[in-house]
């Protein structure tokens, strides 16, 4: 890893308060993303992916808070900033694209206004300059006939086109970090591939550091540089993508990878594993995957899983699969 990652998250812990009790939703998540690099954050729904992203963006929903840890954007410790200062980094240093492109845009504003709104406020563009910038951005994300479509409203675009517009919105102020939270989940397969290709092209052209969240490992196999697998709020495996895809070591990662052939289903189905992820309110002690794990031993239920391996492939497990030699 080079010395200066654009994103550095260290031991992030997010907690929720409910009925007077505080309980952890995300625990001890750490990762770094360099310029031009893509980290795939993977796991079943409910494992804390979106909240990790929200914490990074400073957009945790009310009732949730960052209990400890450190988040650096381009070297700056954002948790030390006042809320208004952190807000100013959003859009300019870090952009975000979310899952549902149909609802992500304001239905009653023409798209050009939404695309350049943040840039207008940040750089004080006048109207012609702003329209020009909007056109440039829409062309960059591949909206056809962009010049004719500036004044169109979101409902006049298809889901895939709206996601392109949403990407243009996220990139309006040239952020160097992009958070993409399941940006293709709501789209059909062909559109998924197109959007993924677009994100990949943008990352390479602009040297974006991308945090790509998905529950579908197959989607990112081609593009990811690093893979981080979460289960029930914790990291279970974190590795360089090449190593990971050559041989995931955690039983849960294997199960996720085994789910790949079932690409057409909207949710991940773990092919050879029964049961559902636990609820944050009653996480089991020891390894949280133990109740569903095919390789479980007694120790898994009493002790937290130890880290195994090096920073190129680290797995938290009592009985991981052997590393594939690369």
């Amino acid at each position: 890893m080079s010395a200066d990652p654009l994103v550095a998250v260290e031991s992030l812990r997010v907690t929720a308060r409910r009925a007077g009790r505080t309980y952890p939703i995300v625990e001890d998540v750490s990762f770094q993303i360099e310029a031009g690099s893509l980290l795939a954050l993977v796991g079943e729904s409910g494992c804390g992916k979106s909240l990790t992203a929200a914490a990074l963006l400073g957009l945790l929903p009310w009732g949730l808070a960052i209990a400890s840890g450190r988040i650096r954007l381009e070297g700056q410790d954002v948790l030390a900033l006042a809320p208004a200062q952190w807000r100013r980094l959003r859009g300019r240093q870090v952009g975000a694209v979310f899952q549902n492109p149909l609802a992500a845009l304001n239905p009653s504003l023409p798209i050009w206004k939404q695309v350049v709104e943040s840039a207008q406020l940040a750089f004080g563009l006048d109207r012609p300059a702003a329209r020009h910038r909007a056109l440039e951005l829409l062309e960059r994300v591949g909206v056809p006939d962009a010049a004719q479509r500036l004044d169109d409203y979101p409902h006049q675009f298809s889901g895939g086109m709206r996601q392109r517009v949403a990407i243009a919105v996220a990139l309006a102020c040239n952020p160097r970090v992009l958070v993409a939270d399941e940006p293709t989940t709501a789209l059909d397969l062909i559109t998924q591939a197109e959007i993924l290709g677009l994100l990949n092209r943008l990352r390479l052209e602009q040297g974006l550091a991308v945090l790509f969240i998905t529950h579908d490992l197959s989607l990112v196999a081609e593009y990811a540089d690093q893979v981080l697998v979460m289960y029930a709020g914790r990291v279970v495996e974190q590795a360089e993508a090449r190593r990971f895809f050559a041989g995931p070591r955690h039983p849960y990662s294997r199960a996720l990878l085994g789910a790949i052939p079932r690409l057409a289903t909207p949710e991940v189905r773990l092919t050879d594993i029964e049961g559902l992820p636990p609820n944050p309110l009653d996480y089991p002690s020891g390894c949280r995957f133990a109740p569903r794990c095919p390789r479980v031993i007694d120790r898994c239920r009493s002790e937290d899983p130890p880290p195994v391996g090096d920073e190129r492939q680290r797995v938290f497990c009592q009985r991981p699969w052997a590393a594939e030699g690369i």
Binding site: A84, A96, L105, N106, L121
Partner: peptide, 26 residues
Amino acid sequence: RQDYVRTARARGLCEWRIATHHVLRN
């Protein structure tokens, strides 16, 4: 509750602008 409010926050708009330019309009 709509997603476009989250999108607006994610691009760094302040709450005042979100209220007056986005929520109010709808």
